[in-house]
Design a protein around this nucleic acid. Sequence first.
DNA 1: CCTATATTCAACACATCAGTTGATCAAGGA
DNA 2: TCCTTGATCAACTGATGTGTTGAATATAGG
Lengths: 112, 112
Amino acid sequence: MPVDDDQLDKAFAALGDPVRRAMIARLSRGPATVNELAEPFPITKQAVSRHIQVLETAGLITRTRDGQRRPCHLVPAALEALTSWIDEYRLETERRFRRLDAVLKTVQEQDK
Amino acid sequence: MPVDDDQLDKAFAALGDPVRRAMIARLSRGPATVNELAEPFPITKQAVSRHIQVLETAGLITRTRDGQRRPCHLVPAALEALTSWIDEYRLETERRFRRLDAVLKTVQEQDK
DNA sequence: CCTATATTCAACACATCAGTTGATCAAGGA
DNA sequence: TCCTTGATCAACTGATGTGTTGAATATAGG
């Protein structure tokens, strides 16, 4: 599953904001409207609306239509793409560390 | 292992830049100096130096001293903190979806 | 048709960020 | 000591981001 580099940009940048992360946390418990998402924050609904647009552009959420409401839904596959990207490099680093440990251990053996 | 919210801010924001992500990818294959990290990019070394400072402030890398060089090292634990944060909400969402699927299936059964 | 509610658009202020150039600092080698 | 190399600091510029207010759009309901 190749991931668009531009989508990674937008998705990681989107998570680099505490308001948007809190929205993600909220949406993991179920869909929510702009008004519901705005409730915990001391900012205008216009500002919240734009945070939502950022999350949508990043592919982290989708939106449906329910009368005058526009509920937001989390997209787990988008989150999974991020963890995959990170894990690729984390695991490679950890493998390298283990190889290094093994080498050091060998050297210690030879020193005896 | 509770993660500082401010560190999450900085770490996710740091990954929201293709230059810094490329640096992470490079560092997963081993330590590198500012000059080595700068090599693939058509920007000044001062700019690269600041990208590195961003990654360091975010806790994603550490730096050692080797003469006049300042090699950078990836910190896998910092990457792991990010995947943990994401996975918490991704897994919750997937569980919710499965519960919803089960409900729909039950309704279909009753319709027969 | 009129009004209230949910959401978005437009224009603006302000802050932060990524890049530049030029100067500075620190360590190594002749 | 002098010169080179690696890296950083400082000041500036242009772009992007986050917030505001005020107006506009769309749907629900009497």
